[in-house]
């Protein structure tokens, strides 16, 4: 008997991201899917995952999913609550965070991100939320996981604006810029998983989610997509993963 049930593409994304969060890691958590994935991992295989929210909550153990990064539940359950200058200067810049998770409106083949504008900076077609913590999370965390839905609008040949550096122009660029973290290690999308090629730093499709064809992923990428010769299929969400995820989602923004 198979251990699977019907699931949505968003659920697959969240579960795939959660599986990458190994127990004991110190994780800088943004709101939305990253926070959901991190809290799902804590319920499953990573009870000692350390969650750091940029609002100042270190070691937060929320009983329900927060709606914002500053919900009271985060401060109330944290090991320590510190100021925003301290979070960014001592903890993030200080190199104390293993892993950051970021979303974006656009990503390019070298995993650089745009969250600033669609169109020209001065006269944007769409004004996006902006940088937030992303440039320094990507610069200073040990590694970065990027999560976004895949389409030719989001996976673009050229970013409208570089808000956050992944691998810049390619091999060696992070080192030349003096960025201390290793950079993006994984991109999780609704179609599959992409990882930077160890030599070229170019995002390469390494896994497709169940029921997704390689052609579809290629078509939904705005550059000629590299596909790993060892392409695999992501394991579908288990009953346990889905049950916890749905429970977390249902209780989002409420207080236990």
């Amino acid at each position: 008997m198979s251990d699977t049930a019907p699931f949505s593409t968003d659920e697959m994304m969240t579960v795939a991201a959660a599986r990458e969060l190994t127990d004991g890691k110190v994780c800088f958590v943004g709101i939305g899917l990253p926070s959901t994935a991190a809290n799902l991992a804590r319920r499953l295989h990573a009870p000692d995952l350390v969650l750091i929210y940029e609002s100042g909550a270190i070691g937060a153990k929320p009983r329900t999913l927060p709606l914002s990064i500053g919900d009271g539940e985060l401060a109330d359950t944290a090991d320590s609550v510190v100021s925003v200058p301290e979070i960014f200067n001592y903890w993030l810049q200080g190199g104390r965070i293993d892993l950051g998770m970021l979303g974006a409106a656009q990503v390019d083949r070298h995993a650089n991100l745009n969250t600033t504008v669609i169109g020209p900076y001065e006269q944007p077609k769409v004004r996006l939320p902006g940088a937030g913590g992303a440039p320094e999370i990507a610069g200073s965390c040990g590694e970065v996981i990027i999560v976004l839905r895949q389409s030719t609008r989001t996976f673009v040949d050229r970013l409208d604006f570089v808000t956050t550096v992944g691998f810049g122009d390619g091999p060696g660029h992070r080192e030349r810029l003096g960025l201390r973290g290793r950079g993006p290690s994984l991109v999780v999308t609704d179609l599959g998983l992409l990882r930077p090629d160890p030599v070229t730093c170019e995002l390469t499709l390494t896994e497709v989610h169940p029921g997704v064809g390689v052609d579809e992923v290629v078509q939904r990428t705005g550059w000629p997509l590299a596909v790993s010769p060892q392409l695999r299929t992501t394991a579908p969400p288990t009953h346990e993963e889905l049950a916890w995820l749905r429970r977390l989602e249902a209780e989002r923004g409420t207080r236990a």
Binding site: N89, Y121, P135, S140, V162
Partner: peptide, 10 residues
Amino acid sequence: VLRAYVGTGL
């Protein structure tokens, strides 16, 4: 002074 922004459009 901080480590920030290098390589970005900002």
